[in-house]
Computed example of a mutant assay.
Amino acid sequence: MKIVLFSILIAVLAVQKCQANCQELRELESTCGRYCFKSLHPILEHTRILQSRISYLEAIEDSKTQEKLENIERLLHKTIDPIQALPFERIGSKYYYIEHDDEVNWFKAAHKCAELGGHLAHLQNEHDLEVLSGKLKHKYYWIDINDLANESEYISLTSGLKAPFLKWFSPGEPNDANSNEDCVQLREVDNIYTMNDISCYDKCHFICEKNKP
């Protein structure tokens, strides 16, 4: 760009010089005209070539930028598509995705369900628990209940309201062991799943729920 500006400056100075000479020597006007054209033509041609090269380089840069954006978009699709492909299965009257492989803490489980377009399982009654239990394979699964805000006040993360259904696995539960058990899991004992309070940072499998598959 500096070269282009410098070339244009030279061209302007040459024109001004020619005009001054022509004013002093009007009788040589035609000769000056030929001289000006002959002097400026290589400079103007060089300027045109430089401008063409700059336009070409700008076009290449725009093309590279567009290509980068398209690559980013493809990567995003590759990241999102596997998540969207995870199957939600109709169990009873609801749709669930049961994570049988990964074990994560309660917060990560809630985040994962949100990524899938749902939420941690929100059990509303004994029937929900019974039909879901038949699909479970492991001993522990996270659901959406917690008492993080107020001790012993068990809230559904899904609704923000008091949990509509609780079924603890033993009379001594929930016990808030070590004053650190604020999240609720489904726990299997003798092939029966009930609820247990546990540290939110323990790792369990989890169950996601959403309104539509």
Rank of each mutant, 00 (worst) to 15 (best):
V4F: 10
Y193F: 15
W142A: 06
C18K: 00
F37L: 11
E73N: 13
E151H: 04
H111C: 08
A110W: 00
L157N: 05
K68T: 00
E151A: 09
Q84Y: 10
L120F: 00
S93D: 11
R34Q: 10
E58F: 00
N150C: 05
S30A: 15
K108W: 10
L132E: 04
G172T: 14
D147S: 11
S170F: 03
E153H: 13
K210A: 11
P174L: 02
L69E: 08
E151F: 01
V189T: 10
Y193T: 01
N105C: 11
N71Y: 06
I198M: 05
K112D: 03
S170N: 04
L186V: 13
L120S: 02
S63E: 01
D202R: 05
N175T: 06
K17I: 12
C200V: 01
F169P: 01
G134R: 10
C113W: 02
Q51W: 08
D144P: 12
F37H: 15
I143N: 00
H41F: 14
S179V: 05
C32G: 08
N71K: 09
E73I: 05
E24M: 10
S199A: 12
E24Y: 10
K17E: 15
C36M: 09
C22P: 00
N150Y: 09
L13K: 11
V12C: 06
F88V: 02
E188M: 14
L50Q: 12
C183W: 00
G117E: 02
S7L: 12
R74N: 14
A14N: 02
E89R: 06
K203N: 12
A163E: 07
I72L: 14
E153S: 11
E24P: 04
H111I: 04
N196W: 15
I60D: 05
K108P: 01
P171H: 09
E115D: 11
E61D: 08
G134Y: 01
N150T: 12
P171A: 04
E24N: 07
L40S: 04
L75W: 05
L148N: 08
D102M: 06
S179Q: 15
E103R: 15
